[in-house]
Amino acid sequence: MNLAQQLINGIVLGHAYALIAIGWTVLLGVARLVNFGHGQMYMLGAFVTWYTVSRLGLPYLVAVPAAMLAGVAVGYVMQRVMLQLTLKQDLVSIMIVTLGFGYVLNGAAALVFGSTGQILETPLSRLDIYWGDLWLTWQDVALVVAAIVFFIVLKYVIDHTAVGRTARMVAEDPPLALLAGINVKKVYLGVFAFEGAAVALAAALVAPRTPILTSMGFDEVIVTFVVVVLGGIGSVLGSYFAGLALGLFTAFFGALVSPAYTTAAAFLVMIAMLVLRPGGFAAAPGSR
């Protein structure tokens, strides 16, 4: 095993994981909502990117916003349908509804895009960088840079802008926010639209690394869970470092032990976290 190569793989994977999970982190931290259709939204983002590039023949730079737009639409529709449940904070029903949406997306994507695997090629994924015996693609570089920029902008928006303040207020106390004249419904719809856009962006950047299938999305969900648990609920910075840690863990586990069981291993890490410090996790906002 080449240590430096695995380190690079781990860092790239880590940024991919952080980006995949960020929608959920914000959803949970800002709106105290969950989305079990997250993995299927990732799948949809990847397929919209693929369709735009290889079927419509449009440039990758057009495909990325197209995928994000599709993500926004799906997120908005989803939240629109379950708005009453959200206002009642009926998390049990919300979980099942989002799971149902994921299943619908899965069926719809198979109907539209077919059930065969596809390769999502971008102009950057074909450009290799060799550095001694180390290897990565420009797609990997773009992914890391985009993730870092995305996290910096997001952190700034949540902490220092009016939009961020409003969202945080709704998360803290929805009835009070309502009294303060904030349109709570709009915030919920906005947060879900953001979740859709974020996961679609992640898909457009990460999916070129592996073949894509309409049945995929489950590994991404586990990754998201682990990042959210490790990083602390709703913590943007926490989920960045958790993503990075998970990426490194996955790269080394895959190289040293077995690539087939990386998801299972990541899951065991999460269980260990939950058992070792259940109080810390259970006491976090949103886990009521």
Partner: peptide, 27 residues
């Protein structure tokens, strides 16, 4: 293991169990 987890954290772990079980069974 999930004794102290409530609501969505409980569901999240059980969902993860199902997904991981699928990869284990397939491999």
């Amino acid at each position: 293991v999930t004794l102290r987890l409530k609501e969505f954290v409980f569901s999240l772990v059980t969902y993860a169990v199902a997904v991981v079980a699928m990869t284990v069974a397939a491999n």
